[in-house]
């Protein structure tokens, strides 16, 4: 049985999406991404370093856009205008590529999203033909509005970006997942493999992470752990867990035939 992740009419085997920041070097970035099995990878758009030695390797040399689905982000943008401008540049940079990750931040200490600016940017981008995966707060009403605008996926935070605090409000995530007709992915806050598994067990369609892998002592091993966790969590979700039963334990071994 094939269980594929579908985003904006394209299907993917892997439900783990990874960032490409914070690694020691490009070789480590590549090794970790290979171990994660991710097909969609996020990149940031930044001013080119002019005067950089010609021939110096770039991220794209290690992660060719032909091999991965690039997800350019708007990290660092604090207004709808900056986010839209950044993604238009990304589209030009990546030859008309439409799939993007929108995030508009509201505060440099928490990196919490500014949902008012995010909604403004989402409307413009959808009208402009982008497939918008949107980083958002875990507010079910906001998630619904983003879906109504025409975003192709909503990506509520599990906890603050880079915090590694795990899933702080599984109940809100559950409400968002139950109501959404577009994929819901957890983006931000995953710290370790069990967090990713819990996100998938809740019914998320995927998980996006960067720091949890890049800031691990052994990023390549953590990338592999995350791959397994996402797969395990997805399988557990599809398998359907047993109900939780407080105070009514049921032994797994026969209750008859005991020696007396």
């Amino acid at each position: 049985m094939s269980d594929l992740l579908k985003i904006a009419d394209k299907t993917y085997q892997s439900r783990l999406l990874v960032g490409t920041g914070k690694y020691k070097d490009f070789a480590e970035t590549r090794a970790a991404i290979d171990a994660s099995g991710a097909e969609i990878i996020t990149v940031a758009i930044r001013r080119t370093n002019i005067g950089q030695t010609a021939g110096e390797p770039s991220l794209l040399d290690y992660l060719p856009p032909e091999e991965f689905t690039y997800l350019p982000n708007t990290a660092g943008c604090y207004s709808a205008d900056d986010a839209v401008r950044t993604l238009r540049l990304a589209r030009e940079l990546l030859d008309g590529h439409k799939l993007v990750k929108l995030e508009v931040l509201g505060d440099p200490n928490t990196l919490y999203p500014n949902m008012i600016e995010t909604i403004t940017a989402a409307k413009t981008l959808v009208k402009d033909g982008f497939d918008v995966m949107v980083y958002c707060s875990d507010d079910p009403i906001i998630a619904r509005q983003l879906e109504e605008i025409g975003c192709c996926a909503v990506m509520p935070l599990a906890s603050l970006i880079g915090s590694g605090m795990g899933i702080l409000n599984p109940w809100n995530l559950q409400i968002i997942i139950e109501n959404a007709k577009i994929p819901v992915l957890v983006d931000a806050g995953v710290g370790t493999a069990s967090d990713a598994a819990i996100a998938m067990e809740l019914g998320c369609q995927g998980v996006l992470m960067n720091t949890a892998i890049a800031a691990a002592k052994n990023p390549v091993m953590m990338a592999s752990a995350m791959k397994k966790a996402v797969e395990a969590g997805r399988d557990a979700y599809l398998a359907g867990r047993m109900p939780k039963k407080l105070y009514s334990a049921s032994p797994s071994s026969p209750t008859t035939g005991l020696i007396t």
């Binding site: 990149v43 940031a44 930044r46 690039y70 990546l94 880079g162």
Partner: peptide, 10 residues
């Protein structure tokens, strides 16, 4: 002018 490229990011 703004001249941009893709870099590592999350």
């Amino acid at each position: 002018l703004e001249i941009v490229g893709a870099v590592g990011g999350g």
